[in-house]
Structures are given as structure tokens and as C-alpha cells.
Nucleic acid binder design. Structure first.
Lengths: 153, 153
DNA sequence: TATATCTCTATTGACATAATGTAGATTAGT
DNA sequence: ACTAATCTACATTATGTCAATAGAGATATA
């Protein structure tokens, strides 16, 4: 049920690009440093996001990456789906990446009906939250003091 | 964001065991046949579930598996957690399988705050749904005609 | 005792993930 | 034009997990 590191890095990169949406571009090196992401790996990920139309790049000395669209228009669902496929916990409840199940009667499968609920719950959040929303949250969290209950988990 | 085949098989096996809770045991072969699960692989999975205290086994000629506890007391969350660990999409929001994140400030991470919501949503469903609930749904679905909208996805 | 079953450990192959290596293309500023 | 900083592209490797298979062994019933 986990997001891959690839997906996690992508979201962190998008957050940085969102927070710097006023600037022309942000360098890979900068994102890599800020977020502790291996630079070469990040290159690949940003390239993926580029072919997905989520970010755009500028080459050369003053080059770097920027969001290809306004932060309000980029949902987490879009990014994750392009990077790792389905948000659904099993293929047989995915709308965009449907895969047939090996179970005897998919249409009347009780597990499938539960997994549909899980899918809905996840998609609801991931499609609602945009990079802009992420940036807002980030700014708020920076201002507020650290929640002491968050330390020991 | 996917459940492994292992986890999926486990749930399907638990459903079969739940539907046959009145019988002393169900053979691996029977489950394997009904659900199209490779038998040897299923053995391992049931063994895992046994060490998790979810199922019990009886050896010998009239042997097989049964639920170790009433179906009402076995949640999907329990089974999945024993088989594949965290339900959370990232380690840093998992309560039982917490892992430190590489991000600069975990306590004020905006992505983490979203992932917490996702985790909550998933856990809420998986902890509420028991094997008994699964069986009820299965029986209802067997009675009802197949929903035509379910065919093409 | 025979046989059908579960038990356990080990191993394999396939695949994805995560990362690294190397060379090349582009662009701003000089 | 030159140079340096950057992105681009493709190849390669390392690692790990997943899914499955193999084979010997233990157990209980008839």
C-alpha cells in the first residue's frame, strides 16, 4: 500500500517548484540540496514529470525546472498516476489502469467492493489536493510552532 | 499504492474460511481451486496468517485451515498489516511501522500532512471491515443480479 | 502402517526500484 | 567564438521484493 520513493521525491520536488512559482526556474541542484534527494535520480523523475506535462525545463547556464501549469491545476493524483500508475489498491478497481483479477467472479467479489471504497477514499484526497494547496499548507506549517505530539510516533 | 498479490490472496483465503466457519477445517487445495491461487504459494500465506494468530491449522488426513477467531474479530487491517506491513502510503505517517523520512523537516512537512489524511482514510475502512462483514457482502452479492455497470471498466 | 495433509527451509526467476556513469546538447554571459 | 553551468539521453548496475517452486519432514486419521 506504499508510495514508491520515486513518487515521494516527485511530490517533494513539486512542492519546491510550487513555492518558487514566481521565479523563472529552479535548478535541480537546489531541489536536490533542499530536499535531500539524489541529484541524478531527481533528474529522471523531473524528466518523467516533464513528459507528463507537469513541469517544463529550460536548459543552459540559467536553466532549471518550473511548473508547466499553475499550481492550482496540478493535483497530486495527476503526478502520482504518471509516475507509478494506479492509485487503487488492486488492479480490478482501478479506472485508468484496470487489470483483470484472477478471482472466480469479479463482478460479485466482496473484497473488490471493499477495495473500491478504499480507492474512492484515496482518490478523493489525491484529486482534491493540488500543488497550490500543498504550498499553502507548507507556509502555514512554517509559521506555526511544531506540534509536540508529532515528535514521538 | 498497491496491495501485493500476497495480500490479495490472503484476503481471498480469509473470505473462504469465513464462509466455511461452520466446518471444522477447509483444505488448502479447496481454497486454491476455488480462488485460483497457486497452492504452494497459498501454503506460505496461510502459514503467515497462522503465526499472526489469524488462522489455525489441523494436520493430517482430515487436516486443513480454519479461522483462529470469530470472523467478527478479524479485521482486514490486521491481516494486511501482518502480511505486508504498513497501510500508510509513506513510512513517516505510519503508526506501527514508522520510518524516518529524508525530508528536511518532517514535523512541518506539507506532504506528510496530506499523507496522514490518506492513511486515516485507508485505516478507517480496513479497521472497520471484518471477515464477517466480508462474508455478509459476499452472500448479498451472490443473491443480487450482476450490476451491468460493473462489466466494462 | 499407509496416505493425505500440513510444516518448514531454501532457492529460483522475474521484475521493479534506486541509483550511478558517461557522453552529449543547449544556453547565458563574456 | 568560448566557456561554464545546466539539462538530456541512454546505458548500466546494485539491490531488493515478489511470486512461485522444490523437496524433505512432521502429523494425524483410517
Amino acid at each position: 500500500m506504499k508510495l514508491s520513493l520515486r513518487g515521494e521525491y516527485a511530490l517533494r520536488a513539486l512542492l519546491v517548484l510550487g513555492l518558487n512559482y514566481d521565479r523563472p526556474v529552479v535548478r535541480i541542484q537546489t531541489i536536490s540540496d533542499q530536499q535531500n534527494i539524489p541529484k541524478r535520480f531527481l533528474e529522471q523523475i523531473l524528466n518523467d514529470l516533464k513528459s507528463a506535462g507537469v513541469v517544463a525545463s529550460k536548459r543552459g547556464v540559467a536553466g532549471g525546472y518550473r511548473l508547466a501549469r499553475p499550481p492550482e491545476e496540478i493535483t497530486l493524483a495527476t503526478a502520482v498516476r504518471h509516475l507509478e500508475g494506479a492509485l487503487a489498491p488492486v488492479g480490478c478497481v482501478s479506472e485508468r489502469f484496470y487489470e483483470k483479477c484472477s478471482c472466480p467472479d469479479e463482478a460479485r467479489c466482496a473484497i473488490r467492493s471493499v477495495m473500491k471504497e478504499v480507492r474512492e477514499a484515496v482518490v478523493k484526497i489525491m484529486e482534491r489536493v493540488t500543488v497550490a494547496e500543498l504550498c499553502e499548507r507548507s507556509r502555514k506549517l512554517q509559521q506555526e510552532p511544531v506540534n509536540p505530539f508529532d515528535f514521538s510516533i
